[in-house]
Nucleic acid binder design. Structure first.
Lengths: 261, 261
DNA sequence: CAGTGGTCTAGACCACACT
DNA sequence: GTGTGGTCTAGACCACTGC
């Protein structure tokens, strides 16, 4: 069986006509797409148990092995989490295990100051029309509203990270400084439960900079202290840009750790 | 069949006795280990075609699917490269495609200054006894010799990266500044062909720093220019540390790019 | 055309978690 | 024990490469 087989799904989706010869899409990729659709549509929410491999195989009229390969890929992309004996779950940023998946700043000496939860201080949360640069980056119009959140993260009471975060106003309706301050969970965990937005992938561009006066103040450093400027684009399902974030990191007792393979 | 089945290999390796119950190693992991051994032993060298999946299945007395899964993992770790219709090859740093796999500094504007081959200038290449820190990091004794290579990389004639590289003397016997200068290939490609060392994995720790006088001179920047300090540990097969490298990067027209997933 | 990797299936059995 | 994911097998067929 190949791509020319009409995939009779629960939703009875006709296959794209152009799949026959020039572009060829393996069955498991098509299954992967369907599972992704269900994830995006919220049929299964972060933390949920999804149907077993055999159930999905029956639903999509393919063998269990094919479903397995689709789920394998989604698990490697951290969209799903497999647990032997229990089932397969929708990944979430709320788990202790993956709490800081996107935060690569690690203590130089892991023995002492723990990677424990940082203290968070929200500076402000403003709703405004998207500045041109923000609009371009988030694929919005300049007439659209956005939220700008600024905050400081401290480790062991040392202010270490200043962040300037931009979010689309339409999907984060109702976001306020109060809500951000009072919620004790990681920010991305709140995004999942309160706004149905799950950050799936991100890209960081890093440079060395000197601090602005404002940053000097927030991080308690002088204007000659070199700092890391980490610009992060975060994406949700289907590579939709959902967040733009500028982080300014102190690196005197911590460093940005990256694994190359 | 499980881990208790003695794996009768070409080399007739007895299985570790402790594999029976407490630790359980799937067959394909054992196959992966055997293939890795062959890679490390140099039975197949970088660029070589390795035996087909069916041949390996016959050699190791397992099914093709099991070999396939082992090779799948090695391919995902970039140790092997699969080419449909041709076969599976030992990965190499000499290919155009993966030339700069470990260099994450990208131009801000990819349209103009190409990611083309950087101009390289070797400052010096010295053989000396390992300083304590270097010895510790490379798992050597302070009585062991090491090579220290210093060089500058320029893009479009702009000096951009200063590197201070430390290598174990015993495995890089005969390394000289001349050889490094005259070889036009990437450094890691030369390591493969001339010293049989393939860098497989690396880890980078990044901070922001101000330049030393020496670096000011090499990179033509003033002492107030913030720079990226990228400390890289490179490993060969079986996670043996093989290189310690301090890179100082200018980030005024380029940035360090990192994908998070 | 033959040979290689890539996909898909069906069925068996193992390891793990829960009840 | 039952149900889940995890491993392994054997065989079929497809897609790509090069002779």
């Amino acid at each position: 069986m190949n791509a020319s087989k009409p995939l009779e799904t629960a939703a009875n989706q006709p296959p794209p006509a152009a799949l026959v010869s020039p572009s060829f899409s393996p069955l498991y990729q098509q299954i992967k797409g369907l599972v992704l659709q269900s994830l995006q549509a919220g049929e299964w929410k972060p933390g949920d148990l999804i149907p077993s491999e055999f159930e999905l195989a029956a639903r999509y009229k393919v063998s269990q092995g094919t479903v397995r390969k689709a789920i394998d890929e989604l698990a490697k992309e951290h969209l799903l989490v497999r647990r032997q004996g229990k089932g397969t779950f929708v990944a979430t940023h709320a788990e202790q295990q993956v709490q800081f998946r996107f935060l690569k700043l690690k203590p130089d000496n892991p023995g002492l100051g723990q990677q424990g939860p940082a203290q968070r201080h929200i500076i402000d949360c403003t709703r405004l029309r998207a500045p041109p640069e923000v609009a371009r980056i988030l694929s919005l119009r300049t007439s659209d509203f956005v939220f700008q959140v600024r905050r400081v993260l401290s480790f062991d009471a040392v202010p270490t990270i200043f962040e300037d975060i931009w979010l689309p106003g339409s999907t984060f309706k109702g976001l306020t400084a109060d809500r951000l301050s009072q919620d004790t969970r990681p920010m991305y965990a709140m995004f999942e439960s309160d706004f149905g937005i799950r950050m799936v992938r991100a890209q960081e561009r890093i440079r060395a900079v000197l601090p602005s006066d404002e940053v000097c103040d927030f991080l308690k450093v002088n204007e000659k202290t070199p700092l890391l400027r980490v610009e992060r684009m975060s994406f949700t399902y289907h590579d939709s840009p959902m967040e733009w974030r500028i982080g300014i990191y102190r690196t005197d007792t911590r460093h940005y750790l990256n694994e190359l393979s």
